[in-house]
Computed example of a mutant assay.
Amino acid sequence: MTYLRAELLKLVSLPSLAWTAGLTLAATGLLRWAVGEAGALPLTYTQAGFLIFGVLAVSSEHDGGGQIRTTLLAMPRRLPLLGAKAVTLALAVLPVAVVTALTSGVGGRVIGYLVATTLLAGAVTMLLRHPVPAVLSLLLVYYVASPLLQKDWLPGNPADVGVAVLVWALAAAVVAAVTFPRRDAA
């Protein structure tokens, strides 16, 4: 419980996450208004906010002052820490996903997709440890590779709320769970 409380306190105290959530909701509302009808089109663009949310939530500890060292001193068991990070990230982004789904008019069927997108971004950032390469690689997959290749096994299409993004998020989480305990903190 201490792990969850500490991670949730960290996420709540990050102003960049509040800004990202607010801008994502505003962009969804504006795109829905511009399109004029309910559908996944606004989510195609505003899912980038969920990618950025996941990247910022995880990379905030690795950037600058190296807060990850302090976190690991306080909570040295890395796998429970990683699990707590994933749970709190999902809990923190869930209300944003619900409001975004309702604002876009798609309804509840994309909420899991948006949460899984955020968890995928968090896992990729845990692997890369730096926000710029994480954002670039995720945006390339979501906005270049997925539309160009048009494959069902690539994440990036909120209209197709299949299992692709969930499989990618689980695969990235497994790789992060294997590598995180074996690497230096820095």
Rank of each mutant, 00 (worst) to 15 (best):
L31Y: 06
V12K: 13
R77T: 08
T125I: 08
L31V: 04
H130W: 10
A185H: 09
R69L: 13
R78W: 02
V93Y: 01
W168R: 00
P80K: 06
G112V: 11
A6D: 10
R129K: 11
G64W: 01
A74N: 14
L8T: 15
G162P: 01
L79Y: 09
T88E: 07
V93G: 04
L8P: 01
G65T: 11
Y142L: 13
A57N: 07
N157G: 07
L166N: 09
A172F: 06
A159C: 09
V87A: 15
V87C: 07
T44W: 14
V87D: 06
R109E: 15
R182F: 08
A97K: 00
V98D: 02
K85H: 12
A57L: 07
S60P: 07
N157H: 11
E37Y: 13
R5K: 15
A38R: 14
L11Y: 12
V161G: 11
A185P: 02
P15D: 03
G39C: 06
I111H: 05
V87S: 02
R78E: 01
A34R: 15
L149T: 11
A134P: 04
D160V: 14
L170C: 10
T179Y: 08
A6N: 13
G22I: 03
A171M: 09
P147R: 08
G66N: 08
P133S: 08
A6I: 02
G65M: 11
L120M: 12
T28C: 14
D152R: 13
V99I: 15
G29Y: 06
A186P: 02
S59H: 13
T125K: 09
Q47K: 09
L170W: 02
M1L: 12
L30F: 14
V161C: 11
G105L: 02
Y142P: 02
G22D: 08
G108S: 12
P42H: 05
R129E: 04
L25H: 03
T125C: 07
V35M: 11
A173R: 00
A116V: 02
T103C: 07
V165Y: 05
V135M: 12
A26N: 04
P181R: 06
L140R: 00
